[in-house]
Nucleic acid binder design. Structure first.
Lengths: 343, 343
DNA sequence: TTGTATGCGTTATCAG
DNA sequence: CTGATAACGCATACAA
């Protein structure tokens, strides 16, 4: 019954269903809504739902959102998706949001302030209910200012908690300390660090942890051993090359990023430097691949997926009008074979 | 002038700006629109835009979309974001879409038919203007059926062109052939393949290319040398273990995925098998990392970014009412040190 | 229990 | 050139 009543123009609307069902559009709206609030008779609800299904009804969330002022969409600004850790984070955000009935509007702008600001603006124009922004640049007030004017809750991820925005982060400083303490415990005293870009707060905090550990061990901090580079393999190559060409090269290198560590690995290979006997190497993130390298990499495991889950959870609290809080998740050292006693 | 006229409740609307400017809302709409179609006097346009800027106006795309039936949003269904190649693809899609004035609604459902169908449904409810779906399961009619009923252009990526949906893909079959021919040219005749999941069309087509090459060389196809596994490192471990434990193990392995190749590398290491002297290994994708491995990996370069760009370009044509066509992009072999002459 | 009326913010179509 | 009006699809307060 009511078989191919479907009007040819695709998407039937509530009104069209109402006509077929012989009721008013508002009745259909009530029947279709999950919560039985309007209290229709169950039989009628079933009948109407059946007709809607037959007609291939598909709710128009965008129209509903205009009415309710809730789009059930959250905006995610997340540069460098190709970084495995960030992809994991993004995946976790998406999955968590989806299971809470939200969808993700994604922006992956280049790692520059203006582009990021513009992405945020665009997302807000799309009436997102909340915003998760990651890897923002440090020390730019525009960011916080604009973001505060957003009118929706904004949560940062991987950003220093040094401003008013709530943040969900891993304890990068502790991670940097763990890695460095491990090397110190192995007898290394001349430890280089491939410290990533200056503007990346995660990298910066790992570097702080590195300095903490040196200081605690009474080892003087030698700035020539701290080299700032880009993330990724190329950064690792540049950083390791620089460090190994020093007059008094380090006996161990801590790369604040696994892919950079892999780059360092390549440099060591090219120079005939054996790992770990000639040089110890520690990475950061524990991407799946580094456990399978010919010399499995010692690294720091950062809970990317949990960060994503926690971020969404916090943001949803914000969307519900509650206070969002800053969350810091613990990290752990994964000891493998790329680190060994100092010569 | 007209300084802090902003009503406290954030987002001012066209109507509020109109009040301040002393004109009608529709006039403001015309003034703000990029194309000077309504032909306002330039001075008036400037004045109104100034007021809008002062008041912190932010257009509500969702309301505009309701009216214009165009959301300037494209839905992307893309499982396994954590795969580097897919992330690159996603990034390229996002970047291309953004520069064309579109935004991305992202769904990364698990690699299962039902979840993928549901994701599509959700995206359509959000009134996306078009859909890019990747890595769909083979041979499930529901997919094509539902997708056809979408009412918006749908483009597939990484999917076999064996049905009616237009697709943008790399030439995976040629890639599989290239890799295998390379090994054959090196004198290998017993070549194993870590062939990925059966349902993944990319993997499947690479396997076909592998068979093509063997056949062309007059080498009989030995099914025991074809092992299906999951993607990722674990799949590579399982596949390599299986192959190397064969009574008559292969002298070369083609992994249809770089990360699987890295897994195979780990297995070789554990068994004291040297690469390439004991075993040649070819990967697929040329993710940045594999060029920096201690033994740089020979692999096939797949143009992930170009696929993304082409996919968006095609889809936009579809959105503009033109016919979309199927695009196949060429791949190339990258010879490095993980392959050598057969013993 | 169900229909009516209204409005969400915007744009398109008319008049004027 | 600009104002008034309607409509996009839906949800809801209100009336019946």
């Amino acid at each position: 019954m009511t078989e191919v009543t479907a009007t040819m123009g695709r998407a039937p609307t509530l009104k069209e269903i109402a006509e077929v069902a012989g009721v008013h559009a508002s009745t259909v709206s009530r029947a279709l809504r999950p919560t039985r609030e309007g209290a229709l008779p169950t039989a009628e609800v079933e009948r109407i739902r059946g007709i809607a299904a037959d007609m291939g009804y598909r709710p128009n969330f965008i129209a509903a959102g205009l009415r309710t002022q809730r789009t059930h969409t959250i905006g995610v600004v997340i540069p460098r998706l190709t970084d495995g850790v960030i992809a994991t984070l993004c995946q976790a955000i998406e999955a968590t949001a989806t299971s809470a009935g939200y969808q993700i509007l994604l922006a992956t702008p280049p790692d520059e302030v203006d582009a990021q600001l513009q992405s945020i603006e665009l997302l807000l124009s799309r009436q997102v209910d909340g915003l998760i922004v990651t890897s923002l640049h440090l020390g730019r007030d525009e960011m916080a200012t604009q973001v505060r004017s957003a009118g929706v809750p904004v949560l940062t991820v991987n950003r220093a908690g040094d401003d008013a925005l709530p943040a969900v982060t891993a304890d990068d400083r502790a991670g940097g300390r763990l890695a460095t303490e491990h090397l110190i415990a192995l007898g290394h005293r001349r430890i280089g660090i491939i410290a990533g870009p200056r503007h990346a707060s995660t990298a910066w905090r790992r570097t702080l942890g590195y300095q903490d550990a040196l200081r605690a061990a009474g080892i003087p901090i030698d700035d020539s051993l701290i080299v700032h580079t880009e993330f990724e393999v190329e950064g690792g190559i540049a950083g390791a090359t620089h460090l190994l060409e020093l007059p008094d090269p380090p006996t161990a290198i801590f790369a604040v990023n696994d892919t950079a560590a892999v780059g360092a690995l390549g440099v060591a290979r090219d120079r005939g430097i054996r790992i770990p006997s000639d040089l110890s190497l520690v990475g950061y993130n524990d991407i799946p691949l580094v456990g399978q390298l010919p010399v499995p990499l010692t690294t720091v495991r950062s809970p990317a997926a949990q960060i994503g889950e926690a971020a969404v959870a916090e943001l949803l609290r914000g969307i519900d009008g509650e206070e969002m809080s800053t969350v810091t998740l613990p990290v752990s050292l994964v000891e493998r074979q790329s680190t060994g006693p100092a010569r």
